[in-house]
């Protein structure tokens, strides 16, 4: 694995190259509520490739979820630009090209598993064949639960429904905000494996926000490490383990070397490696 200094991107570049993925250029975010304005993000620039899996790790409150929310058109930067595939988040959303999964499954309790997944089809109005839905239910391992309501499912199963709902419309950009944060370690590992398998079948450019170093290292092509508030990028670490990745990877020395490295960076020990 290599490590390179934070990318600096010229915000004025027009006409996105074909392989451009997510592009954050000199983002700054100031929250103004009651009391003093809060500087949440300072000079954050990231550029990823189309179809790449990128993770952001960082301490609580470092603004990593804010970045994801900007890409989801749920929030806007105070300064700087956000694009993916050369389009603004709003354009992507209007074209129904975004998929999102939160830490909470956010399912509609009155709908069945199948109907919760179909919600995405109904709302976006996209022409998705019924088979896609069946295939996804099978892919996330929920066969036989199509007609079950969320209250009768375990936490892990609910989160699989949320993932299937995000994927059913084959989004170009997939946004994952701590999707397994509320689950136990065992379930989390299993779902990580499943996520990789599903993700490899779709070509979505993916951004994952997580607290888990192991999760970020296992899933990603690039791990972005952020500082405590105000969030800055401390390092971008490329992860070049070959795909498809298997669970055995978790037990290899090189994987441990990577997670140790990320831990050090998070703890602020990465200063000597920068520049």
């Amino acid at each position: 694995m290599r490590q390179r200094p934070p990318a600096t991107v010229d915000a004025a570049t027009a006409g996105a190259p074909a392989d451009e993925g997510i592009r954050l250029a000199r983002l700054r975010k100031i929250f103004e509520g009651r009391g003093a304005p809060l500087l949440a993000l300072e000079d954050v620039s990231i550029a990823t490739r189309r179809g790449a899996f990128t993770s952001i790790i960082g301490p609580s409150g470092c603004g990593k979820s804010t970045i994801l929310r900007m890409l989801a058109d749920l929030d806007a930067p105070t300064f700087g630009t956000v694009t993916a595939h050369g389009k603004t988040p709003r354009e992507l959303r209007r074209a129904s090209k975004l998929g999102i999964v939160f830490q909470e499954p956010a399912l509609l309790p009155w709908r069945t598993v199948r109907s919760n997944i179909e919600l995405a089809v109904q709302v976006t109005g996209l022409a998705v064949p019924a088979r896609t839905c069946d295939d996804l239910i099978a892919l996330v391992g929920l066969d036989g639960f199509e007609r079950t309501r969320p209250a009768e499912l375990s936490g892990g199963m609910r989160q699989r429904v949320a993932i299937a709902r995000a994927l059913v419309t084959s989004p170009e950009v997939l946004l994952l905000d701590e999707p397994f944060g509320a689950l136990d370690e065992m379930t989390r590992r299993r779902l990580n494996l499943e996520l990789l398998r599903i993700w490899s079948e779709q070509a979505a450019t993916t951004l994952l926000v997580t607290h888990s170093i192991e999760e970020a290292a296992f899933l990603s092509d690039t791990v972005v490490v952020m500082s405590p508030r105000p969030g800055r990028i401390l390092a971008e670490v490329e992860v070049d383990f070959p795909r498809p990745r298997k669970e055995a990877l978790l037990r290899t020395p090189s994987f441990h070397a990577l997670t140790d490295r990320l831990s050090e960076l998070l703890a602020g020990g990465g200063d000597d490696d920068r520049g």
């Binding site: 074209a95 129904s96 956010a106 919600l119 709302v123």
Partner: peptide
Amino acid sequence: RRQIVEVLHVMNASRLT
């Protein structure tokens, strides 16, 4: 639940939807 509304928003749901 705020996140349900946000998920729908990301799906490009209209206000009425």
